[in-house]
Design a protein around this nucleic acid. Structure first.
Lengths: 344, 344
DNA sequence: CTGAAAGCGCTAACAG
DNA sequence: CTGTTAGCGCTTTCAG
């Protein structure tokens, strides 16, 4: 009260944002009661709750989530790290995650590594700094620094897209098995000269795993398993261009097993433009089960992976875990389905 | 020091996370110097900076961004709100945003409204609570509550996808002009009986705006402008199915102007399966310029919109603004390109 | 069911 | 260039 108070008051607030204290004051309760009225409505009397909610409405209060997170060290933020947004498969997983997580009041913090593990590490670091409630990350392969960081992190980690023993939770499918499945299908159909075509396999190593499965089956049948690796991302264009390359390199090719549907559909459409008959002149198979493959003629033989479901399942498991259920180091195989079309 | 200190010390820290103070102590400097060494390296002596960085490394310090944001009320978080992730056009914009924003050290907080303006409002509210540095939102139409909230918000707002006078910054294209452009093309090609086909136009109102442009042109030529509205989202499947419906309803249709390439390509492929000749029996046009359209035969006539560039440009403008440059209420027209293919 | 006090971990402000 | 001090706005803890 006296003019000569010991310290000049330092003013920092410049934002005119309404605070919880102001709401509390307007409602005639203490700040903590206002907090409870909003976050644990059942722990507060009807009267208090009502007047707080009324004050919130009247003052246009927007909770400061940053302050809340700092105080509680829980953020309701879920970090999601994927290697690419161009490849629609990751987007579909994100979609499944998002619809489930948003319904539970979680927000997604999105990171894109562009298939770079160092970038991935940086993103993980940043996201840990946001006190994320959990981390969803594509793939089981990470660099050393990333592992070190995450081993000492005590929140759920969900690795998706591929199946295997990871750091914590895992939802995915076996790409080796998928590769085996398609190779078996092609052999059953009578093809013997089969080429695998992938794009940037050092980045998209899951396509490499499918090749491993493919090769194992072919070799078990005494067949060679040639592979052509393209140096651009998988796309219709790349698929179209790859066709000539494959036929030049392996003229007696009977079937091509493409690492994904974009490549396969691109090749199929290109083959038709060139007057090739599919599958008589050349059989074509893909992976992913994109809608496009079901609309070309003949329909594309492919393997359908349940990507949105993968996202939903991952989210559901995370929510269960965040709700205190003790599920650790759990693995979920979402499987895949062979869709045999006319292209083989 | 005495046992009977006035208050028992309340302990709250349970996380064993390394703090900046610990780093500072290890480095033999004050916390604020450590802070500066990390955030404003040039405002600190070489010696101090080096020893802080060394301590960070040694202790495995990960900055607590939540605390930093609260203290500084700047979060380096950018809220991005889109109506859908199924529709690839939004994903492409996000991609453009992300590659530019991440390079500048911003993170994306992603929200999906599912074309619901109330949901949009809720997301905006949540995101404001995160003290986002800026907001990127698809479209110029928002509900009243959302406008009220944003009018009192003093951070940059970037509305994308369509062109017009918005709340603050805007990067997009004129959908009315795009509709006009395609209609003009079809008329120039000699078609007179032209049907517009859209899906869920109350949600995808930008497709409705394209129809308005389309209709204006047709009516100026004394032609009728019938429209068929599908009640499912645009997809290859929906496009394929719409073909029969259009031909039943308007038997003398010469050309169909589809609201997007998914619909158009679906119809084109379906027409071919049915033995129709394109464009002789029926001409088909789309919108978006998806790669798919360039790989079907005949190539799909469409309008290409520069979506990734839209994202990059939006991000660049935001960064400029966040860097203190005074650009307000600025509009950017990214334009579009007619790609005339064999389908018309 | 309600409240007082004490921080969460960091940085703005102000002085040296 | 460096440090002291005082918060940012909320929630935990502990006590009624």
């Amino acid at each position: 009260m006296s003019k000569d108070s010991p310290h000049a008051v330092k003013q920092r607030r410049r934002s005119d944002q309404v605070t919880l204290s102001q709401v509390a004051q307007a409602a005639g309760v203490s700040p903590i009661t206002a907090s409870r009225a909003l976050n644990h409505p059942d722990k507060v009397s009807n009267r208090a709750r009502r007047s707080v909610l009324e004050a919130v409405e009247r003052l246009g209060y927007v909770p400061n989530l940053v302050a809340g997170s700092l105080a509680s060290s829980r953020s309701r933020l879920i970090a999601v790290i994927v290697p690419s947004l161009v490849n629609t498969v990751f987007v579909e997983v994100i979609k499944g995650l998002q619809e489930t997580l948003e319904a539970e009041g979680y927000q997604i913090l999105l990171g894109n590594t562009d298939y770079d593990l160092d970038r991935e590490y940086q993103l993980v670091r940043t996201f840990l700094g946001w006190s994320c409630s959990a981390l969803v990350i594509a793939g089981l392969r990470h660099n050393k620094a990333c592992h070190t960081l995450l081993d000492n992190w005590d929140h759920p980690i969900m690795e998706v897209m591929e199946l295997g023993q990871g750091m914590d939770l895992n939802v995915g499918l076996s790409h080796v098995a998928a590769g085996r499945c398609m190779a078996t299908h092609l052999i059953d159909k009578g093809y013997r000269h089969i080429v695998y075509v992938g794009a940037l396999l050092s980045q998209d190593y899951r396509a490499g795993m499918r090749y491993e499965g493919h090769r194992a089956v072919l070799e078990a049948h005494g067949l060679r398993a040639p592979i052509v690796e393209l140096d651009t991302l998988g796309s219709l264009q790349a698929g179209a261009e790859s066709l000539a390359q494959v036929l030049a390199q392996y003229p007696n090719t009977q079937a091509i097993h493409f690492a994904n549907d974009d490549l396969a559909a691109g090749a199929l459409l290109a083959a038709q433009r060139q007057g090739l008959s599919i599958p008589r002149d050349i059989a074509i198979a893909g992976f992913n089960g994109l809608p496009l493959g079901q609309h070309v003629t003949p329909q594309l033989t492919t393997i359908l992976s349940p990507r949105e479901e993968m996202g939903r399942l991952a989210a559901t498991e995370l929510i269960r875990r965040l709700g205190g259920k003790s599920v650790y180091r759990r693995q979920h195989d979402v499987g895949f389905t062979l869709q045999a079309g006319g292209s083989t």
